[in-house]
Write a protein that binds this DNA or RNA. Structure first.
Lengths: 345, 345
DNA sequence: ATGAAAGCGCTAACAA
DNA sequence: TTGTTAGCGCTTTCAT
């Protein structure tokens, strides 16, 4: 086989115009402003378009309109152990949500140590119309940069560093999720519900922790010694859980992530304690791990599909220069209950 | 803040040319064929390019060269429970691999019931140079279609239906992976090593199974009753494992996926059997689930980074009309050993 | 309601 | 080695 190339040239506006006996401009109007055409002309042109299977050339259109209909998303390299799973699920839904409006997602990469790397190149090449930014955990230098150069963007994640930032964003109330999980454990009869969270430097982690704290306060439970901060891995969580369960008074553990919750489940297995019955456990993000962990891990689920839809809506608003009704949108998570938080018989 | 737009117009070829005191064509050559320029002219032009931060407009270049430097990848919607995790990890590495050559990955979606949906539109709009196809489990109708219309593409996955297909592809020898896993279990002293696989309709599943079969044959073990086919979910696997372990003679289970292996681990937990010590278990794909499952799941790992590199290499070969040295490339998986297959003292 | 002319920024082909 | 001309396919502007 010789390497293949497209052979038959695509039909162009001119082809369609000639075939339909109209000018090129009329065909263009049929596509972009059909209301300008007389009904029969429109029908005739559309018939030819259909017949030829004509689709406008994107490069030409982009050159003229300065709009690529492409949305850039920086995609981090796969990291061992770390779960990009949430982002991945978000991207899937984002692709769906953009498809309906003829936009596409372009992935690009950048130096992991430089959060700004990559944006500039795409921008200068006028390759994308806008960016969607997902990694706002460590502040939003990208947002600052893009605002400075006047590039449109929307972030999934609130501007932690600068609550006064006026760019459009969508986020999920993590504190509400942790609160739901904690209340659920309290309702199951667990008095001393501990928190296993991330290091203090994580804004997201501290936000989630505040939800746990709020629930305990509302229930009148003393939090002393119940809040623990560790790094996000199974083993650290397993060891922290062992320490935490030593004296037998802690019977509920709300966790900042599924990874950490799974570490707690491991510790329970090693102590011959029954998840749900002896100790209730909840995770965060409803990852695949939560679904397959034994005996099923209760977890807070972010409404990613809705997040994607809102993000795309905001992108459109920004691109059309129309001020969005509400540029900052906070969505609520839900709790997916599985057996790790339920008493058996 | 009023919705932002790029304000300062990007410099163009003409800007650079004027500033450097040369013609536009010379600037173009400085970019695309620097060897044509005299050294000092080149240096002067490059200095101006640097100074102005000039980057060629992609749309204009694409219109002229008919090459978008965009590679299309159909991205399936997030499916509940099903793990796209392998594909996701592949995409991450693919983005990395393409970045080095100035290509980008464009995601698009399509009707889940129509494997061809979406390709056509991008093609007609001349929006992408080539496609990467990942979902070849159920045959390769996309490959047939793209070959017919003369569009360049490379598949991750061999052409199961038609071994004589001549398109470029990269795949990982699943049978070799299953063989490695089975040999590993046999070496650990397990005699009767069972296989828990997918339905017979899965070509990938049957291929992996053949590796298990080969290993048992080489070890002189009778396979009667040891090979079982189920669907890919934790619960089906859990129940199948219970049936399989009933008589106590099966002490090793090689699984076609991590999901199924995790189901086996659940069954072991319910029977109070120790993974690794009483029954050795292996999975497939080294997913996050394998890493966090208790007590750690031994799993076959596909060299996705290498797959991505080979895929990109083939894409370039195809696009440059140079016949690739070897259009069909089979890579070998490795076994990641964890405690589910190791005896504890 | 439709058509003609111009031009977006770039590179291929050719001329100097 | 460098410059000139033309044109990729489309939409914007203006004329009819």
């Amino acid at each position: 086989m010789s390497p293949s190339r497209r052979l038959d040239p695509q039909p162009t506006l001119a082809t369609v115009a000639e075939r339909a006996g109209v000018s090129r401009q009329t065909v263009s109007n049929a596509l972009n402003s059909p209301e300008l055409l007389r009904e029969d002309t429109l029908a005739r042109v559309q018939a030819v378009i259909e017949e030829l299977g004509y689709t406008p050339n994107r490069a030409a259109r982009q050159l003229r309109t300065r709009s690529s209909h492409l949305i850039g998303l920086r995609f981090e390299p796969a990291q061992e152990g770390t779960s990009n799973a949430l982002i991945d699920r978000f991207v899937h839904t984002l692709v769906e949500a953009t498809a309906r409006t003829g936009h596409h997602i372009v992935l690009f990469s950048g130096d992991p140590h430089d959060p700004l790397d990559g944006y500039d190149r795409l921008l200068k090449a006028t390759a994308v119309d806008a960016f969607v930014i997902t990694d706002t955990y460590a502040g939003t230098p990208q947002a600052d940069f893009l605002r400075k150069v006047g590039a449109p963007f929307v972030t999934f994640g609130r501007p932690w560093d600068d609550p006064s930032a006026r760019h459009p964003w969508v986020d999920v109330a993590g504190s509400k999720g942790a609160q739901l999980a904690t209340e659920h454990l309290l309702a199951a009869g667990h008095q001393r519900v501990a928190w296993l969270g991330w290091e203090k430097s994580s804004r997201i982690g501290e936000d989630r922790r505040s939800g746990w704290s709020r629930a305990l306060r509302a229930a009148g439970v003393d939090q002393a010694g119940l809040g623990v901060r560790i790094s996000d891995n199974v083993d650290a969580a397993r060891m922290a859980a062992h320490a935490m369960l030593e004296d037998g008074t802690v019977t509920g553990v709300a966790c900042v992530s599924d990874t950490i919750a799974i570490g707690v489940l491991h510790a329970l297995a090693e102590r011959n304690l029954r998840p749900g019955t002896d100790v209730g456990v909840t995770g965060f993000d409803d990852s695949l791990g939560a679904q397959v962990a034994w005996p099923g891990l209760t977890s807070v689920r972010q409404p990613l599909e809705q997040v994607a839809i809102e993000v795309v809506d905001l992108v459109h608003a920004v691109l059309s220069l129309r001020a969005p009704a509400e540029p900052a949108r906070m969505l609520e998570p839900t709790l997916v209950v599985r057996r790790s938080s339920l008493r058996q018989d």
